[in-house]
Each structure stands twice: as structure tokens, then as C-alpha cells.
Amino acid sequence: MNNISAIAGVVIKEMYRRKDFYVLFVLTALITLLLGSVRFFNDDLIVRYLKDVCLLLIWMSSLVIAITTAARQIPAERESRTIFPLLAKPVGRGELIMGKFLGCWLACGLALLVFYFFFGMITASREHAWPLVSFFQEIWLHWICLGVVVALALLGSIIFAAPSSNATICFVAVAFILFAGGHLSHLANGMRGMAGIIVYVIYYLIPHLEWYYSAQDLVVHDWGRIDWLYWGVATIYGLLYSGFLLSAAWLAFRRRSLTS
């Protein structure tokens, strides 16, 4: 665990010393504040569109941070050859993957805290209310979702040679899951033969990240908190998928030759 936390610490340090996060945060804040400054029909109490757009931007930014950070971790270590002095120390490849995962995931969590604090401020300024339980559930589910995304990008970084192609594939896959993942069974119902079976297999195989993404609607439209039981189910589901993807990444990486 010591090695994992040490590697994670370096990843976090890297994230806050790079400019990606700050640029995305400033962009999100600017667009939200710009939209917030518009008065529609002389009404100051309109808030849901602002919450909606702000959450959309937070989701997009967090996905960009998660995928780009995770996708470059191992390829960058190999390209800059920093992996050699690191693996020449008593560090297992599994520990390296876990450290990278934990670092990226925690870094995403820290970024989420900053983003959601801003979101909370915007909401409170208009609604004069802070539904802390709903916010907590939303941040948590968002973070769990990013865990799966980070694990996916890490697995991709071992399979695909170039970080850019891996990041693109991850973006496409995540966007597909978010927008169509939950509807694949309906699509499969309308298909016959092999195509229908394939779509069904994909439906049951993919991590259903749309659960986590759609939860923002509950916050935007003030539906109150999610049933804790299902919140817990979503948490375990996300963690299991992350674990599964990380195991696959470890299996692919553990016997791979690294030539210095």
C-alpha cells in the first residue's frame, strides 16, 4: 500500500502542477457566470438552466481530466523512460497500475470538490438553499463513475500504443455509454438474429455509466436524494467494474517486456 500511495502522490502532484485543470475550471466558471448574468424575462429566480449547464460543463471537464490524465500515465512513463528507474525498485507492476489509478482517481476527486464547490455557490446564490445530501450523493456517484473511466483509460493505455488514440477511443466509448448505453436493450429488441445477440452482449458487458450521469437531473430538478440502497448498489457496481478493468490492465501489463 505504501508504494501505491507514493505513486499516487506523484500523480496528484503532476495534476496540480499542470495547467489542464485550471484551464477547464476557469472555462467552466466563465461560461456559467456569463450565463448567470443573463436575465431572462426580468426574472432573477430562474436557476435550473444554470444548474444544468454548470453540471454539464463539470461532467465534460471531469471526463477530459480523467481520460487525458489516465491515458497518458503509463505511455508517458515509458516514453520519458521514468518507468525504468521506478520498476528497478521494489515496485510490482500491479502496484504501479494501482498507484496510477489511485492517483488519477484521487486527483479527479479533488478536482470534483473544487468544481462542485463552485456549483454549490452558484446554486446557493440563486436558490438560497444547499441540499447537502443530494450534492454529496451526486459528487460521490460522479467520482465513482470517474473511477471506472480512469480504469478504462488505464487499460486502454496498455492496449493502445499512442495516448491520443487511446484518449479518443475512451471518449467515444464513454460518450456512447452515457447517451445510448441504457437503451441498447431496446435496440436489441428490435433487431433479429446475430446483430440482436451482439447488441445484447454489449448491453450486459458495458459499465452502465449512464446511471451516474443521469443522476444530475435529480439535482437540477430538485427531486431530492436517491434511495441510499440504490446509491450503495451503484457504488459497489462502479467499484466492481473499476476492479475488473484494473485486473485486465494488470494481466495485460504484468508480462509485457519493457526494453530500455
Binding site: 448491453y203 446511471w211 443521469s214 430538478h221 440504490y230 448498489v233 451503484a234
Partner: peptide
Amino acid sequence: PSDWIDRVGRHFYP
């Protein structure tokens, strides 16, 4: 709900 994924998923949207 068509399956367990759909059933659980319905707790996360209106």
C-alpha cells in the same frame, strides 16, 4: 423495467 440494469437505473433519473 426490462431487466435489472433498467430497474436499478430508474432510481437515478426522474
